[in-house]
Design a protein around this nucleic acid. Sequence first.
DNA 1: GTCAATATTTATGTATACAAGAATACTAGT
DNA 2: ACTAGTATTCTTGTATACATAAATATTGAC
Lengths: 217, 217
Amino acid sequence: MSENTHQKLRDEIENGIVTGVFEPGERLDEVQLAKRFGVSRTPIREALMQLSAIGLVEIRPRRGAVVVDPAPQRVFEMFEVMAEMEGMAGALAARRHTEVDRDALLAAHASCEHSAASQDADAYYYDNEGFHLAIYAASHSSFLEDQCIALHRRLRPYRRLQLRVRNRMKVSLDEHAGIIAAILAGDTENARKRLRDHIVVQGDRFSDLMQILPKAR
Amino acid sequence: MSENTHQKLRDEIENGIVTGVFEPGERLDEVQLAKRFGVSRTPIREALMQLSAIGLVEIRPRRGAVVVDPAPQRVFEMFEVMAEMEGMAGALAARRHTEVDRDALLAAHASCEHSAASQDADAYYYDNEGFHLAIYAASHSSFLEDQCIALHRRLRPYRRLQLRVRNRMKVSLDEHAGIIAAILAGDTENARKRLRDHIVVQGDRFSDLMQILPKAR
DNA sequence: GTCAATATTTATGTATACAAGAATACTAGT
DNA sequence: ACTAGTATTCTTGTATACATAAATATTGAC
C-alpha cells in the first residue's frame, strides 16, 4: 500500500453501504473485512470509526459495528431536511450564479433530458445527481455544498428505489425545468419552493416505497 | 480503562477544540496526546479519525492532524446554514410542539431571563444553549435535532465571542420572546423568520468579530 | 558564510501481539 | 429431555513493534 489506506477503505466501505453491498443491519466483522481488503484490522477499524462518526455505521462497545438501519420515520426526517437544504441551495444559486454556473446547469439538464428520452433509468439517476451537484456549486457556499453532498449521499439508496416508480423520470425532468428557469431568472423564493417540493415529493413517495422495501430484503 | 476509551477521548478532544484548549491550526501530536491521556496511540488515532470525519480536524497523509481553522468566509457560511436549520426547527416546533415542549420552552426562556437580569454572560451563554436545544426537541424531528446540535456545537467558539458585544444579551432575550410567542401561537412562518433572523444577526455581527479575532491570537 | 546534498531523527501508518468481555458450546444435574 | 452452570472460543479493544515518509540537522563544497 503506497498511500493512506484507511482513507481508501473508508470510501470503499461507505460506497459498499450506499450501494447495498453491505446491507442495513449487517454486521461488519473486522477480520472479515481485513481479509477482504488484504490489510490488517487497524486501518479497517479506523475506517469504521470515521463511518460511525458520520452516522453510517453504529459501533456498540465490545459488540462490533453494524450498518445502521434507520427507521422509516428517520429516513423521512432526512428527506425533510434535505428538502430544506436543497431549497436553500436553490435560493442562493438564484442570487449568486455566474455564467459558468448557468452553463453547467443547462448542460446537466440537457444530460437528464437525454437519458430520460432514452428511458435509461441508471443513466438518469447518474445525470440527476449531476444536476443537483450543479445547483450546490452554483450556491457558492462551500459549506452548504458539503452538507448537501453528504446528505444526498446518505439518501442514495432510498432515492435509487424511487426511479422505479412509474413515470417518475418524466415528472422529475419537468420539475427540473421549472427549477432551472427560476434559478436563471434570479427568482430566489420560487427556486427555493420548487426545489423543496421536488425533494418533498420524493419523500412522500417514500412512504409508498416503505411498503415495498421489506419484501426486497 | 474499564470501558471504550476512544469514545471518551473523542469527546475530550472535541471538547478541547470547541472550548479552545486546542487552538485552531494547532498540530495534534499523537504521542503527546497519548501521554496526556495516559493511553497508547491507538485509541488516540481512532478518536482523531472520528473528529476528522465530522470536519473538526484535518488529517493530511503522513503529516499528522491539525485542528481545522476555517476561513472567515466558511464560518459565515456555517452561520447561514445554521440560520436556515434553526428556522426549520422553529417552523416544525410551531406546528408540532406538545404541552411538555411548551413547558420546557418557557422554562428555558425563564432561565435566560434570570441570567440576563443578573448580567451573567457565562450563565446566559449556557441557558441560551438550553433554549435552542428545547426548540430542536420541540421540532420532533430527531434527525434535524442531531444536525442542529452538531452544527451548534461547531459554532460554539464563535458564538461565545459574540456575547461580549455590548447589549447582546438584552437584544437576544427580546428576540427569544418573539420566537417563543410565534412557536406557541403555532405561527410556523413567523417562527421560522424570527429564528432565521436571530441567527443571521449573529452571523452579521460575526464580520465585526473577525476584525477583533486575529488580535486575540 | 551560504547553499546543497546527505545523514539522522522524528512521527505517522500498518501489522501483530496480548488482554478481556461477550457469545457459544458443553457438561452435569434434576 | 431440559435447564443451569461452567468452560471454551471468538471478537473486540488496547498496546507495542516495525516500516516508511517527512522534517531536521549535519557536513562538505564553493
